[in-house]
Design a protein around this nucleic acid. Structure first.
Length: 191
DNA sequence: GTTCCGATGTACT
DNA sequence: GTACATCGGAACG
């Protein structure tokens, strides 16, 4: 699948496909180990109920970033996907740090490696993602994606921090990874 | 290990 | 005014 094509699937499919992919921002990054899917039919999604000033990028073309501030303090980074159905996106929740560890530690305040990117807010701080990248094209610098070449074991479960749609099992993780924001249980295999 | 809490921008009632 | 796709530190065991 091409770097552009990977974003043109349902949120659930893209969230699954990106587990094990490498992701860098200006050369800083690592392996995506945790994602969550959201779409317009989903009461937990910002896109549920249609476009607003904040969620604009979710209703634009796939392959763009949707960055928003949460709890007034942190940033969350999403990949807009599904060209056939607007309002779909994948939240990147955790990364296994591989490149630019020194930069990440400086930005995060010298945290242990497993705590550098183990959550959506932490990951944005470590990678330097903020509102300046909202709406940016994910197929162009500073972004770089490389999909996994081998099949990876994926765990799946309910999403974190949501109240509405809490049962929907749209959180995906690299099975057994110690870099997750929180553990997952059920295991299956995917590419 | 656990629970509780404060920080505080933006959307929405 | 209230809720929210969070985090880190304090208090406790």
């Amino acid at each position: 699948m091409s770097a552009r094509g990977v974003f043109d699937g349902t949120a659930e499919a893209v969230a699954r496909d990106l587990i094990g992919a490498t992701f860098h921002v200006s050369g800083i990054g690592g392996v995506i180990v945790e994602t969550e899917a959201y779409d317009a039919t989903d009461p937990a999604s910002h896109s549920f109920g249609g476009p607003t000033r904040r969620n604009g990028p979710m209703f634009g073309p796939p392959g763009r970033a949707y960055v928003y501030r949460i709890y007034g303090l942190h940033w969350c980074f999403n990949l807009v996907c599904d060209g056939a159905r607007r309002g779909s996106a994948v939240l990147i929740r955790a990364l296994e740090p591989r490149s630019g560890l020194d930069v990440m530690r400086r930005r995060r305040g010298l945290k242990a490696d497993a705590a550098l990117c183990s959550g959506p807010g932490k990951l944005c701080e470590a990678l330097g993602i903020d509102a300046a990248l909202n709406g940016a094209d994910l197929t162009q610098p500073p972004f770089a994606f490389v999909l996994p070449s081998r099949s990876v074991a994926i765990s799946q479960g309910p999403r974190i921090g949501v109240t509405r749609g809490a049962e929907t099992p749209w959180r995906f993780g690299l099975a057994g990874s110690r870099f997750l924001s929180r553990p997952l249980s059920a295991v299956e295999t995917a590419t």
